[in-house]
């Protein structure tokens, strides 16, 4: 992808011209195009038919099992506890940056599953902090961060994903909303965040794929995908998240219904802020478990 995309004046024409962005935008993007020599960034998606009960509540045991499988696959070690030991050390002060948006918060079952494995990896309970709105102060001194939130559409940034989840590490998050949240990747370069993230978890149990009205939420526009995604790369995981939402929107509305232009903070996070990769040819999506209705 050309450096033109990091010039200060990004236009509609730039998006139309650049193939890599088009690949990010299309729900028709297929599997990895080229399994060449270059090492690819892994995004692991695990789904389980029993992840939710009939009332759409997460099943704690199934959630734990899903998280374990995903992390094991990502790290490349069968034993999930040993895999977590590769992510955090007992001496770490670990911050779980969760998300409390009232309509679709991080499920408590996912937070508990994370805490359980952190403790199994040797981190004391009093050295595990968790916050969302107060992260700017409570998590600023952490030595390790676990980034976790549900995937949803967002009025300004196109999607609420792992990149955007760190917006609460700044004292004035609303300043990042204009210009369709283009500079979100900048937050990842701040000293309170840079280099600390050990794992990104994008919760796709019941993603929100469309929003209207001031509250941008309707249960009609969520569906039981019953999945978790993990990656070391927040840009790659968000790029896959966009594909998933676009695919669901096409399935639901019967036509392309783009988020396209409002998700360019993902490309900025890649090309301007160097936080990760949005290039689909450099991302390896590994799918585990239940494959019916996987959409991507």
């Amino acid at each position: 992808m050309s450096d033109e995309l990091v010039k200060s004046k990004l236009t509609r024409r730039d998006f139309i011209r650049h193939a890599a962005y088009a690949a990010l935008a299309t729900s028709a993007y297929g599997e990895v195009l080229d399994s060449g020599e270059e090492k690819k960034v892994k995004v692991v998606l695990v789904r389980d038919e029993d992840a939710l009960d009939k009332n759409r509540n997460p099943n704690p045991k199934v959630i734990q099992s899903m998280l374990d499988k995903a992390v094991s696959e990502l790290v490349g070690i069968d034993d999930p506890v040993e895999a977590w030991r590769r992510l955090v050390k007992p001496k770490d002060l670990v911050g779980i940056k969760t998300n409390v948006w009232s309509y679709l918060p991080t499920p408590r079952e996912v937070e508990d599953a994370i805490r359980r494995r952190l403790k199994d990896a040797g981190v004391r309970e009093d050295r595990i902090l968790m916050d969302d709105r107060g992260a700017y102060q409570t998590l600023a001194n952490c030595t390790a961060l676990i980034n976790v939130r549900p995937l949803r559409t967002h009025y300004w940034s196109g999607i609420g994903g792992c990149i955007k989840n760190y917006i609460m590490f700044v004292p004035d998050p609303w300043r990042y909303h204009p210009d369709t949240c283009a500079p979100l990747g900048h937050v990842w370069t701040l000293p309170s965040v840079k280099g600390k993230t050990r794992l990104n978890i994008l919760v796709v149990l019941t993603p929100l794929f469309h929003g209207v009205g001031p509250h941008h939420f309707s249960p009609k526009y969520t569906w039981d995908y019953k999945g978790l995604m993990v990656s070391f790369d927040p840009v790659a995981i968000d790029a896959i998240g966009v594909r998933l939402l676009l695919a669901k929107r096409r399935e639901f509305f019967g036509a392309e219904k783009p988020l396209v232009y409002s998700t360019h903070h993902i490309i900025y996070a890649d090309k301007k802020y160097k936080v990760g990769t949005s290039d689909p040819s450099k991302i390896q999506l590994i799918k585990l478990g239940w494959l019916e209705g996987v959409l991507i």
Binding site: S8, K9, L10, T11, R12, F15, W156, D179, T180, A182, V260, Y261, S262, H264
Partner: peptide, 10 residues
């Protein structure tokens, strides 16, 4: 306007 029809960041 950008939400209705994206023109440019600037």
């Amino acid at each position: 306007l950008n939400r209705i029809y994206f023109i440019a960041d600037k």
